[in-house]
Every structure is written in C-alpha cells, then in structure tokens.
Amino acid sequence: MPKDDLMPIGVFAQRSGLTSSALRFYADSGLLPPAEVDPVSGYRYYSADQLVRATVLRQLREIAMPLADVEAVLDSGADAASRLLDEHIAKVVGDAVAAQQKAATIKSVLGSVPSLPIAALKGPVLADAVEQVLTATAHEPGMPVLAGLRIEASHEAVTLTATDRYRLATRTLVPAEPPAQTWSGTVDGDELRAAAAEIRRSSLVRVEAVPHGIWFRVAGRKDRHCRLLSEDFPDYRLMLASLGEVTTRVTVSKELLLRTLEEHPGEHIGLHVADRGVNVVSADDEHPGTPLSSTATGPALRIWFELTTFYPAVSAAIGPDVMLDLRGHDQPVTIRSADRGDFTTLAMPIKAPCLNETTRNTP
C-alpha cells in the first residue's frame, strides 16, 4: 500500500481516540495490527479502513469488556455481536447491583448500630402489596424517589405508597404483630421488587430498620436488605387532603372494564358516565362507544385518561369489581375495590383530546 494512503501511529491515535501506547498493545495482542511496519525504522502505519475497527474497539473497552470478548465481537456478524454485547451489559449491571447491595449491607453494620424492629407481616400478603403498589413507580431522571416505595408504620397498621406523579397507589396492611413504634422511610423500588420473591416464600417476615436501609428477616431463608432513598417523598397526604368531594360514583366489573380497554382503539380513553352506567368512548367519530354493564350515581360526567395511566390503575385493583370515585373532569379519580378498602389508586385525567392539546392535569 502506498505510504500516502497510510497514517503514522500518532495521526491514527488522534483520529481513533486511542493512545499510541494502546495501539501498540492492541497490535501486539493481535486485535489491531498495523497495516504496515517499516522494516528499517519499525514505524507503524495504519490505513483509514482500520478506523472503524479501532473506534469500536475503544468503545468496547470503555464499557469494560474483556479483551477475549472484544475480539469475539469484532470478528462476529451483527447478530452475534449484539448478543455478546447484551450478555456483557447484563453481567455488568448484575455485578453493579450485587456490589451496591453488598455496600449497603456493610454500611448497615458499620458502628454496630442495632436494628430497629418495625413490624411483623405475613410474607405472601406483604409481597402482593409490594408488587401492587410498585406499579405506580417510575424511573425519571433527576427524581429517583419516584422509583421508591414509601413505608409508614403506625401502632395500628403499615402503609405502602408509591407515585409517578400521574398515578398514586397506596395499600394498608394489618400487621401480624402490632408495630412497637412509628417509623417511615422510602425504600429502593428495584431492590424491593427483587426481594419480593424471597418474602413471598416466608410465612412471617420481620421488618427492621438500620441506618440507610431496612432488613426483611425471614426464618429459614436468606434475609434481604434494601436501601433507603435519601430524597424527600412527595407530600401525598396534602394532595389527598385537598381532594374535593366525590360527585359521581361508578361500580363496574374489573374484567369487563379491562377487556374493553384492551380492545379500545387509540391511546386516549374517554368515560361517559350517565344514569344508566358508563360508556367507554373514543376520541374520534369512527369508533362508537362501548356501553358497560355497571351502576352509576350522581351527575353525568365525561372524563378522559391516557391508556398508560388508567389501564394499570384498574389492573392493580383487588377483587372482581372496581369502584370509580369521580370529582370532575379535571380532578383525580379514585379507583378501588368495591368490597375491600385496603388498596386504593388515584389516576390523573387529561384534557379532552378535541382541544388538540392533550396534557395531563398534574396535581
């Protein structure tokens, strides 16, 4: 190859983002040999065609991929390379989570601070409650607390709460043993979700608080530790206290409502409530409304939701029937079991699609 078509190692290093010493290392390891080596001076020269391989090599090393795996990716087809990348990232994430949990465990015992007993709960009941309430969490940049679950223990009950700002879910549990004292904290939702499987297999779980975390103590199984989040949880009690009076109430089969939502076209759900029940309507004239067998009391009302907000709120409800407590077209709707009051979800409506500016009515 003519020398005019080649780059000396310094120029190639600058264009590829790799240092000259790294290029020598990758040449010696066989990952990126130079296009030509001057037999007299030993100078190394690279071709422009090698820039893509060099750039990908650098990027793979930046995500801490071992050399053997880097070589496999570089020499594989697109499908195999993608699979190898997915496997590597899964391992990195798993190792990071394990290290994070181990660090939290170490911090929990530093200084030999004794744990604080919070409550004793039935494992399957607690696991179900955790999974139900966690449906209202969200991962949002700059707001890690929205991915957490708030636990509040009083002398009579333990309350779990989560919110993604457009939906709020809360469930109250009666402990197997009365809590010895009041306590509250926001637990990392991802770690709690992972712990739920172990909690579910235990007939009784004792919850204990330590600095920066809580322990779930289970007899005959591995105890699970979850980190506490330091950010302030949204003041949902203030929002609940400011809710207006319920003006319209609907009771409908959960299965029937969910099936109608699944078959409903579009991303916006309209509920038209009248004295004969509720009708699920569309934002256009091409799809007629779907009347549901239901009961309704109070003034007629039309209210709109995003499917991604309303469907999971209904899906998480307990029991065969759900009750919708409506306060107006621009006020949160309360979705709860028609015969059990320990789990409640609030969902924010949106402006009517005909306004050509569909936005959530955030609290």
Rank of each mutant, 00 (worst) to 15 (best):
G341R: 10
S154G: 14
V207P: 06
E306V: 09
T186D: 08
E62H: 11
Q59K: 11
L67Y: 00
P312S: 04
I118N: 01
Q100D: 15
R15N: 13
H268P: 00
P211C: 06
T358P: 10
L271V: 02
D275V: 10
A157F: 09
L258I: 12
G42W: 13
L31R: 11
I350Q: 04
I89D: 02
H212W: 14
P349I: 08
H212K: 14
R167F: 09
L238H: 10
A96V: 11
I63V: 14
A195K: 02
E177F: 02
A72P: 00
V273N: 00
Y43M: 10
Y26F: 15
R340A: 15
L238F: 06
P179T: 05
D128C: 03
T251E: 14
H212T: 15
A153G: 04
R15H: 14
A313L: 10
M7T: 07
L67E: 02
R167S: 12
S115P: 04
Q50G: 10
E306T: 13
A27S: 14
A197M: 07
A138V: 10
I106C: 04
Y236F: 14
V281S: 08
E231C: 05
E255N: 12
A72W: 00
I151M: 15
V205L: 10
V109P: 02
L346C: 06
L355A: 13
E140Y: 02
V130R: 05
E208L: 13
V40N: 07
L326A: 01
D330I: 08
E152G: 08
S294G: 12
N361Y: 13
L146W: 02
E263T: 11
A180Y: 03
L51E: 06
L146F: 02
A119T: 03
A64C: 09
L18Q: 11
Q14T: 15
A96Y: 12
F12V: 04
V97Y: 12
S293D: 15
T55N: 05
S282R: 06
D164I: 01
I106N: 04
L355P: 03
R217K: 14
L173Q: 03
E208T: 13
N356E: 15
T290H: 06
I199H: 06
D284G: 09
R83G: 01
A147I: 06
V145W: 03
T248M: 00
R165L: 14
A195Q: 01
S112T: 09
L85G: 01
T19R: 09
H139S: 14
V37N: 05
S29F: 01
F12D: 03
T345K: 03
D342I: 04
L160P: 02
I350Y: 02
W215E: 04
G277K: 01
V113S: 05
A81G: 03
A138E: 07
G266A: 08
I106M: 09
M1H: 13
D49A: 12
L258Y: 03
D49H: 10
H264V: 10
A169E: 00
P39I: 07
T345S: 15
L160D: 02
A241T: 05
D190C: 11
P353W: 08
V125E: 09
L192G: 07
R237L: 13
L168I: 07
